[in-house]
Computed example of a mutant assay.
Amino acid sequence: MILAFASALCQLFLAGVFVASGVGKLRNRSSVPEAVKALGLPPQLGTGPAGRAFPWLELVLAAALLLMWGPLGLIPVAAAGLLCLGFTVLVGRAVASGTTASCNCFGAKGAPMSRLTVLRNGALTLTATAALAGRIAGGPSLDTLLREGAVAGAAALVVVGCALWFLARDSAPAAEAAAPAQEPASAYPVLPELEAEDEEYRRRPSPAVQLTGIGPNAGETLLTTELVREGPAVVLYVSPYCGSCTAVLERGDEITAALPGVSVLFLFSAAHEDVPDEWEEPGLPLYRDTHDAFAGLLGITYTTPALVLLGTDGLLAAGPEFGVDSIMDTVREIAEVLEEARQQQDTDQPRQEADNQ
Rank of each mutant, 00 (worst) to 15 (best):
1 M>A: 09
3 L>Q: 11
5 F>R: 14
9 L>M: 06
10 C>S: 12
15 A>C: 04
28 N>T: 10
28 N>V: 14
32 V>R: 03
37 K>F: 00
37 K>A: 00
53 A>E: 00
54 F>M: 06
59 L>P: 13
59 L>R: 13
66 L>K: 09
70 G>A: 01
74 L>D: 06
76 P>F: 03
76 P>N: 06
80 A>W: 10
80 A>Q: 10
81 G>C: 05
82 L>A: 06
84 C>Y: 11
86 G>W: 02
91 V>Q: 01
91 V>I: 15
92 G>R: 12
93 R>C: 01
94 A>M: 02
99 T>F: 00
104 N>E: 03
108 A>L: 09
111 A>W: 08
112 P>C: 03
112 P>M: 02
123 A>T: 15
127 T>R: 09
129 T>E: 00
129 T>F: 05
131 A>M: 10
132 L>I: 07
132 L>W: 11
133 A>R: 10
134 G>S: 05
142 L>Q: 11
149 G>R: 11
150 A>R: 15
150 A>M: 11
166 F>K: 08
171 S>W: 05
171 S>N: 14
182 Q>W: 03
182 Q>I: 11
184 P>G: 01
187 A>V: 13
190 V>M: 11
192 P>L: 00
192 P>N: 03
202 R>D: 04
203 R>H: 05
203 R>S: 04
204 R>Y: 06
208 A>Y: 10
218 A>T: 15
219 G>N: 01
220 E>W: 11
224 T>H: 13
225 T>L: 06
228 V>A: 02
232 P>A: 01
242 C>I: 06
243 G>W: 02
244 S>M: 01
244 S>K: 07
245 C>D: 03
247 A>W: 13
248 V>F: 01
248 V>Y: 02
250 E>I: 04
254 E>A: 13
260 P>G: 04
270 A>I: 10
273 E>K: 13
274 D>Y: 11
276 P>S: 00
283 G>K: 03
286 L>M: 09
288 R>H: 04
289 D>Q: 02
290 T>G: 02
292 D>F: 02
292 D>W: 02
294 F>L: 07
295 A>P: 14
297 L>E: 14
299 G>N: 08
302 Y>D: 05
309 L>S: 06
310 L>P: 12
311 G>R: 14
319 G>F: 01
321 E>G: 07
324 V>T: 15
325 D>I: 12
329 D>Q: 12
331 V>K: 01
336 E>Q: 14
336 E>A: 12
349 Q>E: 15
351 R>H: 10
352 Q>R: 15
356 N>L: 10
